[in-house]
Lab assay of single mutants.
Amino acid sequence: MGKSNSKLKPEVVEELTRKTYFTEKEVQQWYKGFIKDCPSGQLDAAGFQKIYKQFFPFGDPTKFATFVFNVFDENKDGRIEFSEFIQALSVTSRGTLDEKLRWAFKLYDLDNDGYITRNEMLDIVDAIYQMVGNTVELPEEENTPEKRVDRIFAMMDKNADGKLTLQEFQEGSKADPSIVQALSLYDGLV
């Protein structure tokens, strides 16, 4: 993909415009910024974590950033290329609610087996709590990752089998306004 070129080839721009919710001009602008920050044309896990640390200076986002990195890194080569970056950004910032929920499901399904187990969710929720640090005051019933996961599973795990399917996750998330709101945070920002 033209590693350190400051412009993408027209056919690449066209393809990314088809695969995302961005215009050709927006794709070019994002590429310019991506190459400025990642001259090699790729972003590794350490660089990704560094970006998260800028956004969450009062907590430790390392663990959460690693989980997000793994979802962005579609081809699992340990690096995020621009096409992976822009497609994930498109879903998280401008995707439909169902697209965002499928993306979030992939984030929580750490072993990619098609289910979110209690332990997988606990890993992610714990990482989120570490990331936000003491900057967020949580209600008593959610002031630990374990309590939050218990509440989520009580609401979403309809067949009580200890794991969530994509359908259970989507339906449960849509029924909880706070989850829908959290997924909409990026709307309109890009």
Rank of each mutant, 00 (worst) to 15 (best):
G133C: 04
K32S: 09
L110T: 00
E146K: 04
T66C: 00
T144M: 07
A45L: 13
N112E: 03
Y52K: 03
E74F: 05
F58D: 11
K3A: 15
P61W: 15
T66E: 02
Q170Y: 05
G47V: 06
S83N: 13
E142Q: 14
D113Q: 03
M155W: 02
R102S: 12
W103C: 04
D98Y: 11
L185C: 03
L16N: 14
S90N: 13
T62K: 14
L122W: 03
D176H: 09
E11V: 15
E26G: 15
A65T: 12
G114S: 08
F34V: 04
G2I: 00
D150S: 08
G133M: 11
D111G: 10
R151L: 12
E81C: 01
Q87T: 08
G47C: 06
E137T: 14
P10Q: 05
K76V: 12
K106Q: 10
Q29C: 05
Q28F: 12
V91L: 04
I51A: 09
F85I: 12
P39N: 09
K36Q: 01
Q167P: 06
M156T: 10
L16M: 08
T117I: 11
G172R: 11
P139K: 08
Y129N: 05
A88V: 14
I152Q: 12
S90W: 00
Q54H: 06
A104M: 06
D98R: 12
T23I: 13
V13N: 11
V12F: 08
R118W: 12
I116C: 02
L110R: 00
P10L: 13
L97Q: 10
Y108K: 13
P39S: 09
L8G: 03
A45T: 06
Q49H: 07
G33R: 03
M131G: 15
C38N: 09
T92K: 15
S93V: 03
G114F: 07
F69D: 01
D111T: 08
D187V: 10
D109S: 05
I35K: 06
I35E: 11
F48G: 13
Q87P: 11
T117G: 00
R148Y: 03
Q42L: 07
R118G: 09
E74L: 00
Y52D: 04
E146L: 07
F64D: 03
Q167C: 00
Y186V: 03
E81D: 03
F105G: 02
E99N: 12
L183G: 11
V132T: 00
E137H: 06
F169N: 03
E81G: 10
I116G: 03
K100V: 01
N159F: 14
S4Y: 02
K3D: 15
F69P: 01
S93T: 03
E81N: 12
R102L: 14
F105R: 04
R102E: 15
E84H: 03
F55P: 04
T135P: 05
V13Y: 06
L8P: 01
P139Y: 02
T96V: 03
F69K: 14
G59R: 11
A46S: 13
Q181P: 07
R94M: 14
P57G: 06
T96C: 08
G188K: 11
F56N: 02
E81T: 11
Q87K: 02
P10D: 01
K158N: 06
D44V: 03
Y31S: 15
F34L: 12
L110G: 12
E26A: 15
W30H: 03
T62F: 03
Q49C: 08
V13K: 02
K25D: 09
R118T: 05
S83Q: 01
N159D: 13
P39W: 15
L166Y: 14
D150M: 09
Y129S: 07
N5H: 15
L107M: 06
F64Q: 12
K63D: 10
K19E: 14
T144D: 07
Q167G: 10
G59I: 08
P61G: 11
E15C: 11
A65L: 00
W30D: 05
Q28Y: 13
E142W: 09
E168G: 11
M131V: 14
E137Q: 00
E120K: 10
V180D: 10
G47Y: 13
Y186T: 00
G78Y: 12
V136G: 08
K25P: 09
K3L: 15
S6P: 12
I35P: 14
K3W: 00
G114L: 06
D77Y: 10
I152D: 05
F69Q: 03
T92W: 09
E140K: 15
N159P: 14
E84W: 15
E142A: 06
D73T: 05
P61T: 03
V12D: 14
K158T: 04
E142Y: 06
K53C: 02
V27Q: 08
K9T: 10
K9N: 05
K3F: 05
V13E: 15
E140A: 03
Q87C: 00
K19Y: 11
D157L: 15
P177F: 04
L138C: 02
K100D: 00
Q170T: 04
T62M: 03
K174G: 13
N119D: 05
L138D: 04
G172K: 00
T135V: 00
P139T: 08
N143E: 01
Q181H: 07
T92S: 10
V125E: 05
I152P: 01
D77W: 07
T17H: 05
T117R: 13
K36A: 13
I35W: 15
L97M: 08
G33T: 03
Y52C: 05
S184A: 13
I86K: 00
F55V: 01
M156I: 10
K9H: 05
N70Y: 12
Y186N: 05
V180A: 10
I116E: 09
V13R: 14
S173N: 11
D157K: 14
R148E: 13
F48P: 08
L189R: 05
T96F: 05
Q87M: 10
Y52V: 07
F48L: 10
D73V: 07
S178P: 13
K7Q: 03
R148I: 07
K106E: 07
P61D: 01
D98T: 07
N119S: 13
K53M: 13
A46L: 04
E74W: 12
I86A: 11
A65N: 02
E137D: 07
E14L: 11
S173I: 12
T20C: 08
D161Y: 10
K19W: 14
L110K: 14
E14Y: 13
L16F: 08
D60I: 12
K50Q: 07
S93Q: 05
F105H: 10
R151K: 10
D176G: 12
S90G: 15
I35V: 11
S178Y: 05
A127V: 06
L107F: 11
A154K: 11
G2N: 02
A46C: 05
F105D: 01
D157W: 00
A182E: 12
F22Y: 12
T135I: 08
V136F: 06
G47R: 02
K36R: 10
A160R: 02
D113P: 02
Q42F: 14
F34I: 00
E24H: 14
I152S: 03
D150F: 10
Q42M: 12
A46W: 09
D187A: 15
D161N: 09
I116L: 06
G162Y: 15
N70K: 04
F82K: 09
E11D: 13
V180S: 04
D37A: 04
F58A: 03
W103E: 01
V27P: 05
R79Q: 15
G78N: 15
T135K: 05
D126E: 07
R102P: 01
V68Y: 04
E74I: 03
V136W: 10
L164M: 08
Y186S: 10
S184M: 05
D176E: 10
P39V: 13
N112G: 01
